[in-house]
Design a protein around this nucleic acid. Structure first.
Lengths: 212, 212
DNA sequence: ACCTGAACACCGTTCAAGT
DNA sequence: ACCTGAACACCGTTCAAGT
């Protein structure tokens, strides 16, 4: 059972009519815009509403408070990210672990760097609210996808795949975040990307069971 | 030259008299208390001032705005953390890389988990402001310390120590943060800690030059 | 040099009134 | 079902007045 959003962070109601869906989408889009253009400090409800072309009252019909809006935004983002990882994992089923690791790191890295300004803005917005449930759900989903992938590897088996798998994900996600936080030059970032793949592979080579 | 705080985030003035130093310390302590007890959402200037036993006006004499206060708090914390890492690195000079890596990961991990509630609170508070200069300064300081340490290793040399070193730090810092973010059970956290050390060692074994 | 606290602009949130 | 915007409580920041 995937952890669902805590009650107090849930949307007040879902858009039913077509124009309401448009409204909600506009609000999401406006939130990102304000975050990018005006900065997290000037992300006010009135500003978002104005940019979305609706009144504050309308916003509050769908999101009981500002945090719920940011929560929903991050939920959307992580949902999309998890899907990308799942697709990438399925494509590697039965292959060698070297290909799997490369695909996993590449997919995650690419997804984060495609719009690095958005990524950074979302990392920040997430810090202002309680995203435990969100991270937890995302983690479990990705965990399941990568573990299934590694379990199908043609060239390796592991004594404790669950631990190895969680370690890999923690390291990969954390490293990517670290690179973003330090805002390293692009060239160095891509060097570290390569080193990270190498590192994961050395690790897997060390912990894998001898082939029978 | 260490990157110093951007002008707009600098303290308005430094405490000169003894009672002023007491005031500033009380403000820092109160900020952490409010952060922990009331949560980041209720971290208001009046609340901090009240808890510190001073008026808002007094706070604004030392910190031009709320962000400057949080900035100074994080600066303090990172300063202390960098010092701990530096000390640990110096203690390992000339030893084997296995000991070095273990000491590095242990020190960082221990510093972060000693008061995990404070760590988490600070991670959050940092997201609300521009900490690039802070992270940059911290990164460079630690980078220098660990690179000097690895350079003195008794049992290994590297073709590109600078890259290897930065990779290690990025991975270690990121992984620790990831563990905090996912709020993993303590037992799993310490398993990952061990796997992380193993991972770093496998990596170093792979990239080190053959002994002459 | 250091401290106070009322005052002001602005933000989050609500709700009676509208289509 | 969906939208509006004035109204209210509260927060960040200032500044004239005090020791």
């Amino acid at each position: 059972m995937p952890a669902s959003a805590p009650r107090h962070l849930q949307p007040r109601k879902r858009p039913l009519q077509a124009r309401a869906t448009v409204t909600v989408d506009a609000i999401f889009e406006a939130t990102i815009q304000v975050l990018l253009v005006d900065g997290p400090h000037r992300l006010t409800t009135t500003r978002v509403a104005a940019r979305a072309g609706v009144s504050v009252g309308t916003m509050y019909q769908y999101f009981p408070h500002k945090q719920a809006l940011l929560y929903a935004l991050n939920e959307r983002y992580l949902d999309n990210l998890a899907q990308q990882v799942e697709t990438a994992c399925q494509a590697q089923h039965g292959k060698d672990i070297a290909l799997m690791v490369a695909a996993l790191v590449d997919t995650y890295w690419a997804a984060k760097t495609a719009r690095s300004d958005v990524t950074r803005a979302l990392y920040r917005s997430a810090a202002e609210l309680d995203t435990e449930a969100l991270i937890e759900a995302f983690g479990q989903r990705v965990d399941a996808a990568t573990q299934a992938m590694f379990n199908s590897a043609a060239d390796a088996r592991f004594a404790d795949l669950s631990l190895v798998n969680t370690t890999l994900l923690t390291v990969i996600f954390g490293t990517v975040r670290s690179v973003f936080e330090r805002n390293l030059p692009n060239a160095l970032g891509s060097d570290i990307h390569n080193q990270l793949v190498l590192m994961c592979l050395s690790y897997l080579a060390t912990v894998k069971l001898p082939v029978r």
